[in-house]
Simulated scan of single mutants.
Amino acid sequence: MLPLERQKKIIELLTIRKVMKIAELTEEMQVSIETIRRDINLLTRQGKIEKIYGGVKLVQSKFGESTIDERMFSQLEEKESIAQKCSEYIDDGDCIYIDSGSTTYQIAKYIKQKKKLTVITSSIPVVNELIHSDIEILIIGGKIRRNEQSIVAFDYLFNFSELNISKAFICASGITVEKGISDYNLEEANTRKKIIDLSQEVYVAADSSKFGKDVTIGISSLDKIDYIITDDHLPKDFISSFKEIGTHLILS
């Protein structure tokens, strides 16, 4: 197993088990204690994990939003189901936008066989997932946001007005009928606002835990969102409230 694969596996294990001893990681990964210690030291320097007495744990976010490494493995079954449903709305020849986020990242896994597809993205994991496929990839330029593994764009680095996006798949950390969709980071929110304005159809891909939350930065009211695709654990009161508005709610 390559170092990056081992480190990703360590994050995955800690996401599930919360705290692990070094001996447990050594046994789980089937490598020497020296190798595990090197991985732990690197992940600690990157700010992804922290050492505690007798073991290690994930670093908890201080500002409300967890890192993408943490979110990649939380509610994974629901996110994969949502992503697969999203892929059913993507046709050969489309030009689509895939947002940065743990749910929209999963979409990339289900579209590799599409023909003459163009993907515009700000997500480094999406680029890595599609890099060996035949899909045309356009990556938005700008500043790298390390915790999110995304690129937050600025007008002088990318000409948004020239994009011709048929379908945009957007993430959100909060969804309410009254306030619409919201997120934690201003720069990410600004990019999403511009993509929503430019796209012919807008899809929000978010698991059911995001409903009923209105977090730091407002992105858009629901009148600009055509579809919200979520998992089937969404409470019935949310489902009934969406029947009164124009945004279509789709359960995966």
Score class of each variant (00 low, 15 high):
H233G: 08
A189D: 05
K210E: 04
V177R: 08
R37Q: 15
L249P: 09
I33R: 14
I10S: 05
H132T: 10
D197K: 15
K9M: 09
V204M: 04
N190M: 15
R71A: 12
V59S: 05
I36H: 05
I16M: 10
K62W: 05
T15L: 09
C171S: 15
T44R: 09
Q30G: 14
G93W: 06
Q46A: 14
S241Q: 12
E77G: 10
A205E: 02
S150W: 01
T191E: 06
E5R: 09
D214G: 01
L163S: 11
V126L: 03
K243C: 11
Y97A: 06
L4K: 15
S87F: 10
E148D: 14
I196H: 09
D237A: 09
A108D: 00
T121V: 05
V177K: 12
S150F: 08
G174Q: 04
G246I: 13
K51L: 08
E88A: 06
F242K: 14
S241P: 06
P3S: 10
S166D: 12
K21Q: 11
E162R: 14
K213S: 08
I170D: 04
K179G: 05
S221A: 12
S199A: 10
G64L: 06
V177Y: 05
V56W: 01
I137W: 01
Y53L: 14
D214M: 06
L138P: 11
M29C: 08
I22D: 07
I52L: 10
H248T: 15
E129Y: 00
I124W: 00
I52N: 04
T216Y: 14
L138Y: 13
K143S: 13
E201S: 13
R6T: 01
F158I: 14
S133Q: 01
S81H: 05
N41E: 14
K57I: 08
I140K: 05
C86Y: 01
L138M: 15
E34G: 12
L163E: 04
E5P: 03
D214I: 03
K115I: 03
E65C: 07
K85W: 04
E65H: 06
G64T: 01
Q84E: 11
L186R: 11
D231P: 02
L130Y: 00
T15W: 08
S123R: 02
F169N: 06
R192C: 10
I228K: 02
K243S: 15
G47T: 11
S61L: 04
I175V: 10
K116M: 13
I33D: 13
C171W: 07
L222W: 07
Y89M: 08
Y156I: 15
S81P: 01
S166I: 07
K51F: 09
E188T: 07
Q149E: 11
A23M: 08
A168W: 01
V19W: 11
L58F: 13
I98E: 02
K109W: 01
D231Y: 00
A153Y: 09
Q46M: 15
V202W: 01
K62L: 14
Q149A: 13
S241H: 09
I228M: 02
G218N: 13
Y110R: 07
I151H: 05
